[in-house]
């Protein structure tokens, strides 16, 4: 569903068409949830944030003036997930919740490598860029706008992150 189709769906849903709302959810649930999860690494918290996003969307759908509703929704997901992460940091570090945030190489090797473990090794910003680019199909320019970074920096960080993932997934060497 491109931005144009999404706008049409939002318009329908604004007119009370719940099927359109359901279709928007089906279309966006995976990229939105992936973005949130890769910030929080906690399924329960991620689902809370996910609920929050779609309830907000229902109550206040994006204005028709917004050209890129996909990016708008992804930005909302990112902001709410980061807020949630900040709140947790104050009360309880994520690393204490049974999901290691930055496992050592030994940990990775001994527990069989997988993509998520490798992604956890990236800096949060790099992981976000990779997720937004690959899982949410966002353009680099959109990611740059969303993260408020120069486009070139986003491009470089993406390439560096993919290189790092490649290194980890190739057994620590490239």
């Amino acid at each position: 569903m491109n931005n144009h189709d999404l706008k049409l769906k939002i318009e329908k849903f604004r007119d009370g068409d719940m099927d359109a709302f359901s279709e928007i959810y089906e279309e966006l649930k995976i990229p939105v949830y992936t973005i949130i999860y890769r910030i929080l690494y906690d399924r329960m918290l991620a689902e809370d944030v996910m609920q929050d996003i779609f309830v907000r969307l229902y109550k206040a759908p994006p204005s028709l003036q917004i050209d890129k509703p996909r990016a708008y929704i992804f930005q909302m997901a990112r902001n709410l997930a980061l807020d949630s992460k900040r709140k947790i940091k104050v009360s309880e570090p994520l690393a204490d919740r049974g999901e290691p945030n930055n496992p050592s190489m030994e940990f990775l090797v001994s527990t069989r490598l997988d993509i998520e473990s490798a992604l956890k090794n990236l800096e949060l910003e790099d992981r976000e860029i990779v997720t937004m680019r690959i899982n949410a199909n966002m353009k680099f320019r959109e990611i740059a706008e969303l993260t408020k970074k120069p486009l070139g920096t986003v491009l470089w960080r993406y390439q560096r992150a993919i290189g790092r993932l490649r290194e980890i997934l190739s057994g620590g060497e490239s």
Binding site: K29, I30, T34, R38, M50, I115, L119, T131, N135, L165
Partner: peptide
């Protein structure tokens, strides 16, 4: 990474 997307 693409295949690793997470479903709620």
């Amino acid at each position: 990474v693409k295949e690793s997307e997470i479903k709620p």
